[in-house]
Design a protein around this nucleic acid. Sequence first.
RNA 1: GGACGGUUAGCUCAGUUGGUUAGAGCAUCUCGCUUACACCGAGAGGGUCGCAGGUUCGAGUCCUGCACCGUCCACCA
Length: 922
Amino acid sequence: MSELVKAYESKDIEARWYQTWLDRKAFAGRVEEGKQPFAIMIPPPNVTGMLHMGHILNNTLQDIFIRRARLEGKAAVWFPGTDHAGIATQTMVEKKLRTEQGVSRRDLGREKFLGHVWEWKEKHGGIILNQLRQLGASCDWDRTTFTLDEGYAKAVLTAFVKLHERGLIYRGRRMVNWCPVSMTALSDEEVIPTAQQGFLYRMRYELCEPTVDHEGNPLTHLEICTTRPETIMGDTAVAVHPEDDRYRHLVGKTVYRPFPKAPITIIADDHVDRAFGTGVLKVTPAHDAADFAIGQRHHLPVIDVLNADGTISAAAGMFVGMDRFAARKAASAELDRLGQLIEAKPYENNVGFSERAKVPVEPRLSEQWFLKYPRVEEAKRVVSEGLVTFHPPHWSKIYLHWLGNIQDWCISRQLWWGHRIPVWYRKGADRNDPANQHVSVDGPSDPQNWDQEEDVLDTWASSWLWPFACWGWPDAQGEAKRELEFFYPTGVLVTGFDIIFFWVARMIMAGLELTGDQSVNSAAELPIEELRKRIPFKDVYITGLIRDALGRKMSKTLGNSPDPLDLIAKFGADGLRFGIVNIAPSGQDIKFDEKRVEIGKHFCNKLWNACRFRQMSGPAGDNRSPAAILARLSPAHLDAYDHWMLARLVELHRDAEKCFAEFDMPNYTNSLYQFFWNDFCAWYVEAAKSKVQASPAQRDHCLALQDLVLRQFLLLQHPVQPFITEELWEKLGYAANFGDLLQQTRLETAAELTASLAALGLAPDPAARARVAAVNDFVTVARTLKAQFNLGSKRDSILSVTCDDASWAILSGDLAETLRRLAGCSQVNRAATQPDGAPAAVSPLGTIYLDLAGAIDTAAEKTRLTKEIERLAKIVTAGEAKLSNEKFVATAPANIVEGARAQLNEAKAKLDENKRLLAGLS
RNA sequence: GGACGGUUAGCUCAGUUGGUUAGAGCAUCUCGCUUACACCGAGAGGGUCGCAGGUUCGAGUCCUGCACCGUCCACCA
């Protein structure tokens, strides 16, 4: 047992222990028959990613769960990996190539470009995983998986083929969200509605044949409002509501599209909102999802006026080649020139933005692959029936609501970086005819006659398989097969609410469709036991979003996002871990402030010093097992504080069990903090100081008890602060054999601890708690009294007490020395009568008088006593009112009534005593 | 337009099925380098629990309505 230095320094200790853990393969998980399985799948960070505060919170929580599971004796494994992140990675490498070599991906061609991306990935990918090591993440690194690994890719393609076989995947020309910058389709979830300042243009469309309005006045044109005049060239109709009296008589007539000038029909459609604008809608089937639907209903022609890159197409006939935003201005000017622009008023509306490229997306008609979501009803059922539980629970409502309204998922992306869709088209044939399509994992046997689909899959269409594809699905053999069967369904998924739709819901559907006993798939509804086997995880822990101290989102542009590695350097990984979990209220956004995580670092130092003090207090005993420590304890030596401490220790184990059962981690850190700092350090260790200086036997007994508390506390604290606890575990000699790790130890349950205490006659005496509470109250009253006379630290203060015999027995009994030490007094004497001129305060163990050499400030004393009397009087009044209420006495539970009575009596006694003291002053 | 959160001390948040005097950390003030820790110790001040009703012997906690803040969903051009 080497000596500890004065202040805790995290840096060297953390680096040393992490290496030790890696060397010993301490994080390796494996099938262990007879043990409960517990797996966590890391939400795979983008391979291009850098660690940010969200990762810190998220991964600290996962590490806490997995480390706790190990201590509980489960077969635990935390599965790490990274996501290829299609658009994000491709965009990043493209940008790099453009700035460094001045070439675009098209200049290079598919193969060469992908070569560059892989090269980048090999060189820089996975930095984030190294960063996680600094945080202390106990992932089973040998399992690290990348979503484009060969095995994983096979799983992705297999899933595609299976779902295609089951008729859930189809190709179609549909309206999709198109990103003109990335030049790919996006799913609905990748589009972020964003408020935009623009204009609402009000314009005239001339009637081909002048007529009259609904009141019989001459009518030469219709007024129409739009926010997008640049799509006028794509107008193929004008629509009004079928029951709109202003316009219904015009249905079937024609108006001129302003440019290129051409007649278009006036149609009637329910979709039109009579109250919006003029109640007339220009219909542009190629550029609006709703308009497209109208076009379908009315068999309208479709004129696509935009190119893939957002410039105006040749089909528009005007502004060809102009960017869409420039074209908007040009179209507006053209309307004005024609005298058809009535006004352009500032207008705010919601525009869908590309999540990645941050530009407005275009609704665009294109050929894409779509997936009908599988097992939607079952996916709802597993959550509503509690097979999968959200924490906090209200997220399940969001989840269920989304599942109730989903559209088919556009899974094709016009990118190169990703899983190329395993579909081949017969050369030169119609691609939309299924007869000309070949779908398989390995491709056709005569590849020369086929062209493979150019598109890749949406990244989420690969990561939705994560919980089972990582284990070698679909054709896991041998050990891999055993592992999948043993560890699936996994334990808890820890993630942010922002990807409940992207990922959580989809993983559940994928698991329900593709795992388990596939032979029962045709059943109309899968039995609940089958669902229980197919769910990907049992619990979903949703973390809040980390914001800055002002509540703003963290962003690069604001520069308000701290570098976690700086924070680790500043507070230690252990400090940061404790701090971030401690301030993360369940399910709410977190206002992050460096100041708020200091608590974690300070706590490390407190723990360190408490252990250091233990070393300084006396010789080490045999700490190699709980039994060895308990053997050093004897019932005969236990005083009230010892009993209370043991009771609290058991209680802490119980609290921890409850927190884990409820996934309440902030409360967990609070319990640990409160127990250690206040109960153990501030009261128990302080109280024990006098005992440590007494006889060697008493000292060793007291230190044995401290050794027990420290041992159990290190085990409980370890999931949150793994480094410092491992270090102290070693330094205090808790290893059963030389070199054993804390994390390979089995943590006793509250029940087990209770049983082993009882077996040795060490069961905590419940009465001790009240006694300790009374003494602590006495101490606090005495300290307050001293502080009021600025004697806070004068250890030679003398107290006199007037009290009954029972109280004096406590004050003068075996706790007498402890009590003097805690109160900071050299003497506590019993007084028969009130000493003259001494300030006084009332405690549960009698009235305390402070022996002051000089005269007291009578006026100040009066003020103080009067205030105390007022406070007590309120309590007495309330208590009397309550107890004189017959209904209360009759209805309320006995213990509540008893409590109220006891409280009233105590307050009354104190009140009388204070009144007496006040009277004595005048 | 729907739905879901939140509103408790100067700040950030706890507050279990309604039940004794509503708590913690930080910040502020006073005193203290007391033989683990100044990354510390002792003490103090600070809240009519967003507003208005209701249920109840009893409401921060349950019900109704309202206000404000936030988030998600929704094809008003």
